[in-house]
Design a binder for these strands. Sequence first.
DNA 1: ACTATAGATGAAAACCTTTATCGTTTGTAC
DNA 2: GTACAAACGATAAAGGTTTTCATCTATAGT
Lengths: 146, 146
Amino acid sequence: MRLSERKISSIMKQRGYKLTPQRRAVLKIIMGSDNHLTPEAIYQSVREEHQNIGLTTIYRTINILSELGLICEVHTAGSGRSYLVRRPLEHHHHLVCSGCNRVVDFSNCDLADIERKLSEGTGFKIEEHLLEFVGICPDCQQTAES
Amino acid sequence: MRLSERKISSIMKQRGYKLTPQRRAVLKIIMGSDNHLTPEAIYQSVREEHQNIGLTTIYRTINILSELGLICEVHTAGSGRSYLVRRPLEHHHHLVCSGCNRVVDFSNCDLADIERKLSEGTGFKIEEHLLEFVGICPDCQQTAES
DNA sequence: ACTATAGATGAAAACCTTTATCGTTTGTAC
DNA sequence: GTACAAACGATAAAGGTTTTCATCTATAGT
Ligand SMILES: [Zn+2]
Ligand SMILES: [Zn+2]
Ligand SMILES: [Zn+2]
Ligand SMILES: [Zn+2]
């Protein structure tokens, strides 16, 4: 299942958050991009159409979306945070282009075996895992060659 | 192979860095802990014996150790950085306790299959991966029960 | 429509983490 | 021991994120 603006709107309202024009503008930018975006980048993009919005509102909106599980954070993006809209709702991971920040989602993470062995070997009760791949996308490979 | 203080000392000198008392003190704290430590935590620990050291020196030392590949960074540690000494020198990953920050290293990460499939499916040239597990260690499980 | 209420906004200040600056101190090589 | 480069600590500066607060909606009840 993928997230539509309608669905996001309904989730937010259900949890007591209003879908204001500012939040709609932030959502539009995040949903319209294939790349992961920093708060500053979102700010700059939103500002092109909505020049009065404050950076504070960007952060507030990001934090809400994150709390509701509607956006994904990328961890291999250097210092600082970077987000993109949650495209598959189910458990998944990211393949990130180090050239243009494009993100491809994938769901076939088969870590159950490793997880079980690790758990048996260490006695840890494993709660979550973080898996991300970094590479160069076809477009950026071409750009690099030419 | 594991890193001894002697080995680290030789690597640092070879790369033009002096092993000062301050750096030795930072190393002692990092090497003496099974947990990942934030710069601030390292600062506090080092200060107990070396009360005049500056936070700047902690950061400078961490950055050198990181550049030389002598420490590992943990990515699932919330906001901000956290480090521990690099115990296996070869490629490896971390299992982190969310209770006490203890870290267990493991080397049998078998992501080659996933990586090949991903590469074929997307056309990405994959350069690196990030894999980390989070769980509760046996000690913290007991603490939680009692 | 009018008002009351709760929530959201933007500007500014505060906060926290990390890095740069600079005068002084320390290690190392001769 | 002297000379030199490197490292130190204090402080300031730079980023990035959150708090504060007065103002401004949006919504619901009248
Ligand atoms: Zn995602
Ligand atoms: Zn790319
Ligand atoms: Zn490690
Ligand atoms: Zn633990």
